[in-house]
């Protein structure tokens, strides 16, 4: 049974393989096309190919506490070029999801951003202004002040409404209910 395989997973590579998106990790041939295709690779502490190698070598703590996965901009360049069709983009997100679930807190503002984005969905539709304000309050007010010129360009043209978007109560409630149901499933181990 599925739940049993997950419980019995002893090695890190099995754990990643049980996560959606991580299934094909054992088929990687370490050719490095993913790292070569990545537009942001110079910011990664460990590039995607190396992360796969590290997962297979069982470097659990090093991988999960690294900020590397947070530099992924989800552009899918690696996915469409991967000769083994292992979908490195999804694999990197699987690593991020495991780190999030286990409470690892790599030092990067992108973690706060991704959590903020997730919470912004709960209202049904995303309200960018509050998303931005919350993000800069939680990370760095100085960065927020530096972004004021961009924000003003947008706000003065009405492109970043200060009031929440039109949204129905029912939509928001349904989204929240769906997210809660998924999280409950994941906690009980029935789904990853």
């Amino acid at each position: 049974m599925e739940t049993e395989t997950i419980k019995e997973a002893k090695t890190f590579v099995d754990e990643v393989a049980a996560e959606p998106g991580g299934e094909k990790i054992n088929e990687c041939i370490q050719c490095g096309v993913c790292s070569g295709s990545c537009p942001t690779v110079e910011w990664w502490q460990y590039p995607p190919r190396k992360i796969i190698a590290m997962i297979r070598a069982g470097k659990r703590d090093m991988v999960l506490s690294s900020t590397s996965a947070f530099n992924c901009v989800t552009c899918y360049s690696c996915m469409v070029r991967c000769p083994r069709n292992i979908n490195p983009t999804q694999l990197i997100h699987a690593v991020e999801a495991i780190a999030e679930r286990e409470g690892y807190k790599p030092k990067t503002p992108t973690l706060t951003l991704h959590r903020g984005l997730r919470d912004a969905m709960k209202q049904g539709r995303v309200w960018e202004f509050s998303l931005a304000m919350l993000f800069y309050f939680k990370t760095s007010l100085l960065e927020g002040i530096k972004m004021m010129p961009v924000a003003w360009d947008l706000i003065s043209r009405g492109l970043m409404p200060l009031l929440p978007p039109k949204r129905t109560k029912k939509g928001g409630q349904e989204v929240t209910a769906i997210m809660k149901a998924v999280e409950a499933m994941q906690k009980s181990g029935g789904a990853k």
């Binding site: 999801a97 997730r118 969905m121 789904a191």
Partner: peptide
């Protein structure tokens, strides 16, 4: 009554993004 496509939560929780 459309809601968010789920894309913002995709990297942190694939399954909930798919469900939304």
């Amino acid at each position: 009554d459309w809601t968010c496509c789920g894309c913002p939560g995709e990297s942190i929780n694939e399954l909930s993004a798919t469900a939304i």
